[in-house]
């Protein structure tokens, strides 16, 4: 059981701004049901002032994904597009009174949903998520073995902590630490040959 804050439970049980705006000015959808989370954000924007006048969300996901999306809508309503874009996932976490490490990606998804909705509003084509080559080692941040290897070689990394510092890999749930260590070991052995 995750040790969620009371705030997370509060937003999960009684989410604010749940739903979908009819004919929205911007619509963002991020994540995918395949990876367990899907967040949809619709926004209304005042054409003159560029103020977000309304925002609604729908989420397929866990308690922290629902809570993060709800907090996001509260944070952006009343802000201009420029102001809203300055909101970070840490702002969402702060309102929620913290998130378990393995759930930080939920707040990241909130930030991404906002970017997607704003891009849609501005008419910018959504950047297609390009799959990096290699096998995903860190599922929390989607970091591949190739990316980790590259960082290790470029920075002469010898510890898991350093890998996290440079690539984020292993920074959340930590279940991939053994895999990261194995990559480090493999590269070190290569050096000895």
């Amino acid at each position: 059981m995750w040790q969620y804050s009371d705030k997370v439970f509060e937003y999960f049980r009684n989410p604010k701004n749940l739903g979908e705006i009819e004919n929205p000015d911007g619509r963002g959808e991020v994540g995918s049901d395949a990876c367990g989370d899907l967040m949809q954000l619709t926004i209304k924007v005042d054409p003159k002032t560029k103020v977000i006048t309304d925002a609604k969300f729908k989420t397929f996901g866990c308690a922290s994904a629902i809570a993060s999306a709800s907090v996001l809508t509260e944070l952006i309503i009343g802000k201009t597009i420029d102001e809203a874009m300055k909101i970070t996932n840490e702002d969402i976490i702060k309102v929620l009174g913290g998130l378990p490490n393995a759930k930080i990606h939920c707040s990241v998804m909130g930030k991404e949903a906002l970017e997607a909705a704003v891009n849609d509003y501005l008419g910018i084509e959504q950047k297609k998520f390009e799959h990096e080559e290699g096998k995903v080692i860190c599922n929390c941040f989607g970091v591949t073995d190739k990316a980790i290897e590259k960082a290790i070689r470029e920075h002469g990394i010898t510890t898991v902590e350093e890998v996290t510092k440079y690539t984020k890999a292993g920074g959340a749930c930590q279940s991939c630490h053994l895999d990261i260590q194995e990559i480090i070991d493999k590269i070190r052995l290569e050096g000895k040959k």
């Binding site: 439970f9 999960f12 049980r13 990876c35 367990g36 989370d37 397929f60 996901g61 866990c62 308690a63 994904a65 629902i66 393995a102 759930k103 990606h105 599922n139 929390c140 749930c173 279940s175």
Partner: peptide, 28 residues
């Protein structure tokens, strides 16, 4: 609907079950 969300809402009613879903097992 996602497994963890169901489990937590059931927990509010005193019901304990489990899910093989990402969010509860600690692995995404």
């Amino acid at each position: 609907v996602e497994g963890e969300a169901i489990l937590l809402m059931m927990a509010d009613k005193g019901i304990c079950a489990s899910s093989g879903s990402a969010c509860t097992s600690g692995s995404p």
